[in-house]
């Protein structure tokens, strides 16, 4: 399927962005690869040739540390050339460690201080509504990030304002920087929490393209803001990353790992 190929291409682009020897957020990128592929190549109204078109849909990466995943999607979509990806985090590169809206076309806001993306997305949704656009705003949030109190301020405010064009997607990969969320800082009953805050809740397998696209489509018609809880695997696609205690959170690749991964995601190996 086309979107599965896109997700594989994003994983390859992510590996290319990390390169050899330097740390990079492979795990958290791979857990959200299908979600981001579905947004950029199926769901969102956007135009790489006119990235500031006022009625475009917006995507915000609240878990900004996986900037390389968004860069990979933007490059794949044609916002800039894929050959720029290996320059990520080099001094002078526009591809910063966290998304910088001033430097990269297609990045909507500077994110990465965790917990703030949903509030920014809510502000966008309110501004778009004032101007009469029916654009949607998608915000990708990490599950560890749900510990940030500001998310719940935004959740409360979004339902108070009936921001029904706002969609939060929780990348529920069960692993944060220091290990499993269940062991480090348990964040349970996620669906119940969002329901209590007045959101419409959809729960899916975050690597199943059909479930992702169905959920994204279902979010079009809602009186309330929608949250999609996407159950995912951190590091999905590479055995050693999936089995790593922190899901290969900000880790380097050896030359051998790099070559193998590039090969795997280029040839369409089973992921």
């Amino acid at each position: 399927m086309e979107l599965e190929k896109k997700a594989r291409a994003l994983r390859k682009n992510v590996v290319m962005s990390i390169g050899v020897g330097n740390a990079g957020h492979l795990g958290g990128s791979f857990s959200a690869a299908e979600i981001v592929a579905a947004l950029y190549f199926y769901k969102m109204k956007h135009d790489p040739k006119n990235p500031t078109k006022p009625d475009r849909d917006r995507f915000l990466l609240s878990k900004g540390h996986v900037a390389i995943l968004q860069y990979s999607a933007l490059a794949e979509a044609g916002y800039f050339d894929i050959s720029e990806l290996p320059r990520t985090k080099s001094i002078g590169s526009k591809l910063q460690g966290h998304p910088d809206a001033r430097k990269v076309a297609g990045i909507e806001a500077c994110t990465g201080s965790l917990g703030q993306g949903l509030s920014i997305g809510l502000g966008m949704a309110l501004g778009l509504r004032l101007d009469g656009y029916d654009s949607k705003v998608y915000v990708l949030i990490g599950d560890g990030e749900l510990a940030e109190g500001q998310i719940w301020e935004a959740a409360m405010a979004a339902s108070a304002y009936k921001a029904n064009k706002l969609v939060a997607i929780v990348d529920r990969n069960n692993v944060q920087a220091q290990g499993k969320t269940a062991e480090r800082f348990p964040i349970d009953n996620i669906a119940e929490k969002w329901t209590a805050f007045g959101w419409r809740v959809l729960e899916i397998d975050g690597h199943n393209i059909t479930e992702i696209t169905n959920a994204l489509d279902a979010s079009d018609n809602s009186e309330q803001p929608t949250v999609i809880i996407a159950n995912t695997v951190k590091g999905k696609g590479l055995d050693y990353a999936e089995n790593h205690p922190a899901g290969y959170h900000n880790m380097p690749l050896t030359q051998e790992q790099f070559d193998q991964a590039m090969e795997l995601f280029s040839t369409g190996g089973d992921v």
Partner: peptide
């Protein structure tokens, strides 16, 4: 009234919301 937002007693969310509003030309 349509251009005033009562953010509730939640300054962090209010300030990031303002950032989002600014990106839409407000």
């Amino acid at each position: 009234p349509e251009r005033h937002f009562e953010a509730g007693i939640a300054e962090a969310n209010m300030t990031s919301m303002a950032a989002g509003l600014a990106t839409t030309g407000k």
